[in-house]
Design a protein around this nucleic acid. Structure first.
Length: 280
DNA sequence: CCTTCTCCCTGCAAGC
DNA sequence: TGCTTGCAGGGAGAAG
């Protein structure tokens, strides 16, 4: 499911019910997800108070009052669900069960198990393996035209592929890269190294805008993504090109009958959608 | 270094 | 209907 807007939506949902509360019980239903849970995982969480929820790229970060941070990555299909005090049946793919002080519980469910969790020292987060090479947050000021140009220098792959690299910019995935390139009017096939000057500025703005719009919509609910409350995001209805092969792109003045509409191609094994008329 | 490929896993839709 | 195939929002690690 999850790219930056979906993870941010999950963060906002969990923040409301977790910050300031203690985790009274933690159970894991299997020894691993994508990676094994760290040794003593449940005990390290038990009775700890959640001080803050942060996000870095596609990672959720729960700062605990033990100076540890719980890292959660949702992979492709991971999602959190919030339950009231009455405990329903454990569902298939419920892997982590967390009781929260005050009667709520949280569950992490992940059919494909590409997600994972880990615990690190809060003051060593930035230097941890997960984050030491991670690029700037796209919604912060250190992501800008000049910094993007620097990151793209020497990259001879198509811009589509390079924007998926989390060390260039954090949090973009397959959907929002296609959408951002459409908004920027840039062909996904253009070599990254050739995006300089005003094109880089336009791309930065396009990335920011698509992410802000998607967050405002609660993310995109294609398969698994939901808000922790169970509500759906609705940005999937706002896609300009993603998943729209053969159809009109948004605000289309192209003649679909002549152009064939939105193109779908594969780049480095991932699908890319774009409008060959508007994106150059 | 940079780049592409393969693989991890389940579910679903399309095609036969 | 039931089977097979391919594809799906991520990313680590190996190989080129």
């Amino acid at each position: 499911m999850p790219e930056l807007p979906e993870v941010e939506t999950v963060r906002l949902g969990l923040e409301k019910v977790l910050v300031g509360r203690r985790l009274s019980e933690v159970r894991i239903m299997r020894p691993n997800l994508r990676f094994p849970f760290p040794i003593g995982f449940q005990d390290a969480l038990k009775n700890k108070r959640v001080e803050r929820l942060n996000r870095r790229g596609k990672f959720l970060l729960l700062d605990l009052d033990s100076r540890k941070t719980l890292i959660a990555h949702l992979g492709m299909s991971g999602h959190f669900k919030i339950y009231p005090s009455e405990q329903p049946e454990i569902e298939i793919h419920d892997h982590v069960l967390i009781e929260v002080e005050g009667g709520l519980s949280i569950r992490f469910n992940d059919p494909r198990r590409f997600g994972f969790m880990d615990l690190v020292d809060t003051d060593k987060l930035a230097s941890s393996n997960f984050f030491k090479n991670m690029g700037p947050e796209p919604l912060e000021n250190n992501f800008n035209g000049p910094s993007l140009i620097k990151s793209l220098a020497g990259r001879r792959s198509p811009i589509k592929t390079v924007l998926l690299d989390q060390s260039v910019v954090a949090g973009l995935g397959n959907i929002y890269v296609s959408e951002a390139l459409f908004r920027a009017g840039l062909s996904p096939k253009r070599l990254a190294v050739n995006i300089t000057g005003v094109r880089a500025e336009v791309l930065v703005t396009a990335i920011r805008n698509v992410l802000v719009d998607a967050i405002a919509a609660g993310g995109s609910s294609l398969r698994d993504h939901r808000k922790p409350t169970g509500e759906l995001g609705y940005f999937q209805h706002c896609f300009s090109v993603y998943g729209r092969a053969g159809m009109a792109c948004s605000g289309c003045v192209c003649e679909v009958k002549k152009t064939g509409g939105v193109k779908k191609i594969y780049q480095s094994g991932r699908s890319t959608f774009y409008c060959a008329l508007k994106q150059r």
